[in-house]
Simulated assay, not measured.
Amino acid sequence: MALQILLNLSIALIWMLLTSQFTFSSFLIGYVIGVLLLYLFRRFLQFDIYFSKIIAFAKLALLFLKEMVIANIDVARIIITPKLKTNPGIIAYPTELKSGLEVTLLASLITLTPGTLVMAFSDDQKTLYIHTLNIDSKEAVIAGIKDTFEKGILEVTD
Rank of each mutant, 00 (worst) to 15 (best):
L9P: 09
S122T: 03
L112C: 06
G144M: 05
G100K: 15
F51W: 08
I14D: 03
V35K: 06
G115Q: 00
V75A: 12
F41T: 01
E67P: 15
V75D: 09
L154M: 07
L109E: 05
F41Y: 08
H131K: 00
E139R: 04
I73R: 11
F51D: 06
K53M: 10
S26R: 01
I70R: 15
I11S: 00
E150C: 07
A61M: 13
I33A: 09
L133C: 09
S137A: 05
M1E: 02
F24R: 02
I79M: 11
L63M: 14
R42F: 07
V103M: 02
K59P: 13
L109S: 05
I142E: 07
I33M: 12
L117W: 09
T111R: 03
I110E: 14
P114C: 04
F47N: 15
M119V: 10
L38T: 02
S122F: 04
T116C: 12
A58C: 09
S99W: 08
T116N: 07
V118Q: 08
M68R: 14
V118P: 08
T86D: 07
S52E: 13
L101F: 10
P114V: 02
E102P: 15
S26I: 01
L65R: 10
L18R: 02
L37F: 14
F149T: 01
S10R: 02
F57T: 04
I145H: 01
L9Q: 11
A107I: 00
K85S: 06
L112W: 06
Y50R: 07
I49D: 08
P94C: 00
L45H: 00
N87D: 14
T81F: 13
K98M: 13
I142N: 02
L154G: 01
P114R: 00
R43H: 14
K66Y: 13
T86V: 10
T19E: 03
R43W: 13
Q4P: 09
S52N: 15
L106Q: 04
F57L: 15
L117K: 01
T127E: 05
I11L: 06
A107D: 07
F24Y: 03
A2E: 07
H131F: 04
F22S: 03
L6I: 10
T132S: 12
L128A: 00
F44R: 11
Y39H: 09
A143M: 15
T116E: 12
L63Y: 11
I78C: 08
I130Y: 00
T81R: 13
G30E: 05
S25Q: 12
T95Y: 08
F27L: 00
I49Q: 12
L97V: 04
H131M: 03
K151H: 13
K146C: 05
K146G: 12
I91E: 02
L128M: 04
S99D: 10
M68Y: 13
I49C: 11
K146E: 14
H131P: 02
T113K: 03
K146F: 11
M68G: 13
A140F: 10
L9S: 10
F51P: 10
N134S: 06
E67G: 15
H131Y: 05
S99P: 06
